[in-house]
Structures are given as structure tokens and as C-alpha cells.
Design a protein around this nucleic acid. Sequence first.
DNA 1: CCTCGTGCTACGGATTCTGTAGCGCCTTGG
DNA 2: CCAAGGCGCTACAGAATCCGTAGCACGAGG
Lengths: 91, 91
Amino acid sequence: MVLFDVLGRRWTLRVLWELRKDPATFRALRERCDGVSPTVLNERLHELRDAGILEQDESGYRTTKSGAALLRALAPLQTWANGWSGGAGTD
Amino acid sequence: MVLFDVLGRRWTLRVLWELRKDPATFRALRERCDGVSPTVLNERLHELRDAGILEQDESGYRTTKSGAALLRALAPLQTWANGWSGGAGTD
DNA sequence: CCTCGTGCTACGGATTCTGTAGCGCCTTGG
DNA sequence: CCAAGGCGCTACAGAATCCGTAGCACGAGG
């Protein structure tokens, strides 16, 4: 699973997750991720772009088709997490 | 998503993944994970046990019910990964 | 008693993350 | 024209984390 080399890094999953709905600019994304340091954010963004999961346009960062599919594959996680850590609409 | 605090660490996803089929002992698990250092392995094992995802018995480490459910939620990943990084039976 | 395999800890060096400061660029608007 | 402010992103030092190897305590087998 090469995939784990990409996803198994701090913030990668989170960054992807925060883009599940709408695209965001660098600074907005940073805030959505509890103010992760710009160094790591930029690093992750690069990795995810190189992996063809994210792309960048004038409105900021967004998922590619492939990335959207990955998010769909990841969706059951939310369901699972709800039953796991409480039950309420934990995000 | 508290979940990402647990899964978004090096080796966590991988360890879980390697237990998807059958349980394994500490040393066996270590080998399945490309010889990850025992320090981190033990650390992850603790975290996953504290999270109620894994448990330990005389035959080694195995997933709990909750952990098995998590793995099911994670299953679509494999499908996605196949279409992403090649198409063959990448593991 | 000796050997072998197990789960796991110790520890030093390498890598990675965090937090803050700030650069260069562009758009306001006075 | 020229601040003022927002933007994407980089620099850098200190802290946290990870890696690799060595080895301990224990139990089984001979």
C-alpha cells in the first residue's frame, strides 16, 4: 500500500478532509486545520498535488476527480467515527 | 475529527491494515510492517488499544469489533488505490 | 545449565513538526 | 503616488517524533 506513505503523515488526511466540500485558499485552509504551520501545510499540499489528488486554480485548492473519488472512499469513516467517539455530529 | 489525531500518525493505518485478515504477534506484526522500529510499533499498539480498536490475547494482537468495523469502512480505499497507482493488485 | 524465541524497553542520532517572523506580490483607497 | 492590508509562501530555531540497534526479562525445550 503505497497509499499509506502518502496518507500516513501528520495532517494529510485532515487537509484532504477539509477540502471535501468546497475549495479553500492557503490561508483559509490553514485556519480550517487549527492553524497548522504553513511549512507542513505547504509540504502536504505539494505531496497531494504530486499525487494528483489536489489541484490549484485561482480560487484556491480543490480536489481533482481522483481526489473526489478518494474522499468518497473515505466517507464511511465519518459514519464509523460517529458511532465510535460519541454519536453526535462530531466533525 | 478526533479520528485523524489517531490515524494521522506514521504507521497507524498500516498497522491496522496488516491486521485486517488475521491476528499477529508483536514480532510478526513488525515484519509485516517492513520492520518498523519496536518503539513506534509499541506506541501505536498502545494508542490503538486505548482507542478500543485493537486488543491483545495469547495469540497476539487482533482487531476488536469496533476495529473490524473501521477496517470495513476503510475497505473502499483498496479499491480506490488500485485505480490510482497502477491497477494491479497493489497491496 | 544453556539456548532459543518472545514481548518489549533504552537510548542516541536523524528526521519531522511547530511557531513565529517576514518577504514579494497584488489590490484597495486616500 | 503611496501607504495599508491581504495573499501565497519561505526561513529558521527549538521541540517533538521516529529510526535503528542493542539488549533485558521471561518462559519453553533440551
